[in-house]
């Protein structure tokens, strides 16, 4: 972490490419405040009509799962094939199911 008080904080940028779609993480940038982060994100990430809505989130507010825990954290899903529709045998001839 830098000590210089004149350094601008880091923001994570999310862009919605089209109405109806999700906002997707595209990268990060430094800016003094949220408004400037939005304007800089417009200049950096939407120069070719890539978006019509921007979210900015201060990077310090992002909390993440730990990669070293990944195995035990996600393995409960490994043996539950019955959560997928293909697990079930459908009677021959049944339609629209």
């Amino acid at each position: 972490m830098s000590e210089n008080p004149n350094n601008w904080p880091l923001w994570e940028i999310f862009i919605q490419s089209k109405r109806g779609l999700e906002h997707k993480h595209v990268g990060s940038l430094h800016a003094a405040d949220p408004q400037m982060a939005i304007e800089n994100a417009r200049d950096v990430y939407t120069r070719r009509q890539e978006g019509n809505s921007i979210w900015v989130v201060a990077s310090q507010h992002v909390h993440a799962s730990r990669p070293e825990d990944a195995e035990s954290f996600y393995d409960p899903a490994d043996d539950k094939a019955y959560r997928h529709p293909t697990f079930y045998t459908m009677p021959e001839g049944a339609k629209y199911i």
Partner: peptide, 16 residues
């Protein structure tokens, strides 16, 4: 550009 970086920080602090 140093004064711009400083001014932006000062302005952000004032707004907050």
């Amino acid at each position: 550009g140093a004064w711009v970086r400083e001014a932006a920080v000062a302005y952000a602090a004032k707004k907050a």
